[in-house]
Design a protein around this nucleic acid. Sequence first.
DNA 1: CAATGTCCATACGGCACCGTATTTAATAAT
DNA 2: ATTATTAAATACGGTGCCGTATGGACATTG
Lengths: 187, 187
Amino acid sequence: MTDKSKNKRLTRESWVKGAFNTLCEEGIDQVRVERLAKKLNVTKGSFYWHFKDRSELLDALIEYWNDEMTKTVLENAKMFHGDPVQRIFSTLRDIISNEKTKHDPVFRAWANHDPKAQKYVEKVDKLRTSFLTDLFVDAGFSAEESEIRARMLYYYVLGEAYVTKKESRAVRLKRIERKAEIFTNKS
Amino acid sequence: MTDKSKNKRLTRESWVKGAFNTLCEEGIDQVRVERLAKKLNVTKGSFYWHFKDRSELLDALIEYWNDEMTKTVLENAKMFHGDPVQRIFSTLRDIISNEKTKHDPVFRAWANHDPKAQKYVEKVDKLRTSFLTDLFVDAGFSAEESEIRARMLYYYVLGEAYVTKKESRAVRLKRIERKAEIFTNKS
DNA sequence: CAATGTCCATACGGCACCGTATTTAATAAT
DNA sequence: ATTATTAAATACGGTGCCGTATGGACATTG
């Protein structure tokens, strides 16, 4: 698709992206060098020129995921200025709509058994929750209350992502927005 | 530990339990026949007497998980009678305290790439949410509102389980109870 | 148009695992 | 005690994967 079948030379990133695909579709233990090679229509001779070994690919994969998550996810939300409550919704929309976020669970499954990946997951979690916390503060909640609500909202969105993977983002977003109102109501 | 090192004969269940352990610790792709054999201090000659092949072990593993989840998890909660809101808390306590529930994420990670396991996960999800829904109804919420709150609460608990795996159950339970109050408040 | 560097193919040894076949040991039945 | 049955050990061929070594194709530069 992205690579016309005539592309001879591959880049390091080609491998990482290919690895990311099979990570999402089959889990980390199924991303193997020779299978990737076949998928990319080359031999592993290519791979071992670009990478020292499989472990180096996995490291690159972690970096790739981290970049995608930190770069793009919260950019739009930061741009958006206006009603603080609306910004919370906008952020949710961002997280859910992001193509990559859809694959959060797969990466988390990996991190579950790999401390290196785990470190980055924790990083991203902190980034997101602290961002959400700030939004609640802007919306007028106390610091403590903001943190509680941010965590609640974030955990909820995460859990929702695990259970309702098959539903469309539109449906999910609608439901989440409906429920998010509860979080933004000052009881 | 459970098996004194002198136990000669193994049962089918020994294998399933061993498989469940490595499933939790390393993921489904790491449960291999010969490694399990070594862990159980036998050879795979034993395994292939009890099972046709690896796939049959995985099927048994799914059944095992399903039984553990449906049998024990909600039993206590059903026993408990009294204030409906208190029953909700009691149920949460049950889900979180259950040793097996702790490993929900790992099993879900597997289900993510295996339709067979996925089916059972959906079953358990439905069981839990419908049970929670009934509790909210008992607590005086409308049918529609009950379902919404049940889903929120359940997704939240799930998401929480993914992010805060390392914390003690006591700490988690305390936090969750604190937050669950919000779900049980009629705004 | 040589020479050098970049990128990949091919060929190899080794390991871990799967599943089968066959044999041996332990337990139960007669 | 002999025989069956059950449970596990051993031995085997086959496959997929890893990483290395080496050579070839292509491009770039002088």
